[in-house]
Nucleic acid binder design. Structure first.
Ligand SMILES: [Mn+2]
Ligand SMILES: [Mn+2]
Ligand SMILES: [Zn+2]
Ligand SMILES: [Zn+2]
Lengths: 151, 151
DNA sequence: ATGTAAAATTAGAATCATTCCAATTCTAAT
DNA sequence: ATTAGAATTGGAATGATTCTAATTTTACAT
């Protein structure tokens, strides 16, 4: 008869699926789980302190240093993505599908934008022969629907 | 007969042409000229302290605060561009042609990459109806020709 | 030329996201 | 139960950038 200490986790989390899928090996501590859960249930690309505040609601003892640490480990394992806009604080994103970020310069909202079906990015810019491209970082700036409507 | 203090500037600088072209109005102080000259003769996207060091060679009395100030004024007049790569220090670029930046992750070099002739960026990502795009920020990461050859 | 107000320049202090550090606590395997 | 390695913690350190308040320079009117 399973006791509290031996019961298995309630259900495979998105995190576990993700780890299996990616063959990532990070120790899955309770804190890292919490940080991931917060991020996976956010669509607004929170900063480290945003994540800190949200995790704190459920785990008041966690420290900001640990949040930074968790975000760093989850990121380098490829389980989440770090997002940079201009020189603002780093934001984090749990969406692993190929996508870019739209930033509304009026309200500050950051939303995901996915590439159209027929999109091959590498061929649109002229690079010196021999250059190897590994990754592109694309941010689109403008005004979101709601803000555009207001003006 | 023109004296040293009244003689006109030797020749229209790139900066003056640029100002006329853009209808920009910034006071053209000697420091701002120097900062612009340094940038216009660089292809490596120097940081503020890089610019500081280079200007200092010709004008040893200039301060870092002034360099930041000049870069800020030139940027907001649209005479130069500020460049952001990940969370590194801001870099600056005097190339006003539409272009993106290639960053070699091995040697750190940053080079300009211009769009292919038939390029219309706005249509490649799916954005919510009503979104207005004003600008895109694109960085390409990888290995430059020289570094790729070495490995 | 001289005086005046606005703008530029300066050194140094302040800011603030992030990283580092050293001490403590937790975890997993023996 | 021991023990080594990893995670967590609070607080200090870092470093690019911005701010401040004093000084100097500039543009313009007298
Ligand atoms: Mn995203
Ligand atoms: Mn450039
Ligand atoms: Zn908006
Ligand atoms: Zn290189």
């Amino acid at each position: 008869m399973p006791t509290a200490s031996t019961r298995s986790t309630p259900s495979p989390t998105g995190l576990q699926c993700r780890m299996a899928l990616l063959g990532a090996d990070v120790r899955l501590t309770p804190h890292r789980r919490e940080v991931f859960e917060v991020l996976a249930s956010s669509t607004d690309h929170p900063t480290a302190t945003d994540v800190f505040d949200r995790v704190k609601a459920r785990t008041p003892s966690i420290s900001l240093a640990t949040v930074y640490n968790c975000l760093e480990h989850l990121t380098s394992a490829g389980l989440i993505k770090q997002v940079h806009l201009e020189r603002g604080q780093s934001r984090y994103c749990a969406n692993l599908h190929e996508h870019v970020h739209f930033h509304c310069e009026t309200c500050g909202k950051v939303i995901d934008a996915h590439p159209a079906a027929d999109f091959d990015p590498a061929k649109f810019w002229v690079l010196p022969k021999g250059t190897k491209v590994t990754r592109m970082d694309i941010a689109i700036h403008g005004t979101c629907d709601a803000c555009a409507a207001k003006s």
